[in-house]
């Protein structure tokens, strides 16, 4: 019973981390229409940043691995540094790339994510390459000694951070900033002809996405306690895409919902083991079930785009009445009537 609760707790934590990624992509794609096919790069940079910032330095009392770099700083510094580094990478990439037409941006970000991964696996002094970094400090660990209790505590902390991210994303979407981004998404030339600096707007959206993904990387690395370059493959990016499209692009609540559905589906396929035939196949070919999971995710992308392009919760519209408009309507109409 307690084991199941702990399992559930770690799944919800994972879903919340995916929610942060999805909200980041949603600002980029859902609002600004930017096809970011390299989101995983910001996630990876956030993860490694947070790990390195919090690792105890070489020779210190807490030091117990083979890594050589560590700053021994507390976890909150790690989260903030992860967000900053994710945002900085997005700024670096986006400063030039956001000018590219839609599908060119998709290719450029896809290629850049691969460059980041190649760099991370080659710069072993920083990332320990194929060995990975383990025993990454876990925050609050000393406060909550029981390991199940710790999972729940971590869940609560993740929920608080993701909740704050959700509130910010919602505000952004409803604000004049979000509305301008949506205009850029609909028609960049028309938006520019109304005096907007569309490249700057797109760059801001891109950087916000990078920050969200960086923070997500930090939360993820500390929940697992280890990090390895091979974890940051392209399929992570496209799982987040699935969460966004499934939940409803442009709607922060929707993409959180989409992330929970994604994690439920993905982890649900673990239980295929219980099907007699499947477990036999799994014995013959150990990659069978993990592969099946990605087949399901790939198929869902195809199906969602085809049958439900607006997702579960479509984008919210700004209504006239919400703006407190219309109160002067009669006056306006009256002054116009004689002309």
């Amino acid at each position: 019973m307690w084991g199941w609760l702990a399992f559930g707790s770690s799944l919800v934590t994972l879903a919340l981390i995916y929610s942060l990624l999805a909200m980041g992509l949603d600002v980029q794609y859902g609002l600004a229409g930017l096809l970011d096919f390299g989101l995983v790069a910001f996630f990876a940079v956030g993860a490694f940043t947070s790990a390195i910032v919090t690792l105890p330095p070489l020779g210190s009392s807490g030091y117990e691995g083979n890594y050589t770099i560590g700053f021994g700083l507390p976890f909150p510094v790690g989260v903030v540094a992860a967000g900053v580094m994710g945002g900085l990478l997005a700024l670096l990439v986006g400063a030039t790339a956001v000018r590219l037409r839609g599908d060119y941006l998709a290719i450029a970000t896809f290629a850049l994510a691969t460059i980041v991964q190649i760099t991370l696996s080659n710069e072993t002094w920083l990332t320990r390459g194929q060995f990975g970094i383990s025993v990454i400090p876990q925050p609050l660990r000393t406060l909550v000694p029981s390991s199940n209790g710790y999972l729940h505590a971590y869940l609560v902390m993740t929920a608080v951070i993701t909740g704050a991210g959700w509130a910010v994303a919602r505000r952004l979407a409803k604000s004049p900033f979000g509305r301008a981004l949506r205009a850029v998404r609909e028609d960049e030339i028309a938006t520019r002809s109304l005096g907007k600096q569309t490249s700057a707007l797109k760059l801001k959206a891109f950087v916000i996405g990078g920050i969200y993904a960086g923070v997500a990387g930090s939360l993820w690395v500390h929940s697992i306690g280890g990090v390895h370059v091979n974890q940051f493959v392209a399929i992570i990016t496209f799982q987040v895409w699935l969460a966004v499209l499934l939940g409803g692009a442009g709607n922060a609540t929707g993409v959180v919902l989409g992330s929970f559905v994604l994690v439920a589906l993905r982890e649900g396929t673990r239980f295929l083991d219980l099907v007699p035939g499947a477990s036999n196949l799994g014995r013959v070919n150990p990659t069978f079930l993990p592969s099946l999971r990605f087949v399901v995710i790939g198929m869902l992308l195809v199906v969602v785009v085809r049958v439900a392009p607006d997702g579960i919760l479509p984008e919210r519209r700004g209504r006239r009445a919400d703006a407190g408009a219309g109160s002067r309507e009669s006056v306006a109409a009256a002054t116009e009537a004689p002309s």
């Binding site: 599908d103 499209l245 990605f294 790939g298 085809r306």
Partner: peptide, 30 residues
Amino acid sequence: PLRGRGAMPLLITSIGLSFVLQNVLRMGFG
């Protein structure tokens, strides 16, 4: 079936298909 809906749905569909094909092969051949 997606013709006339712009490039984005086709792009996403092709990514989905890429993962399906890749992993069907892995299911079959390890």
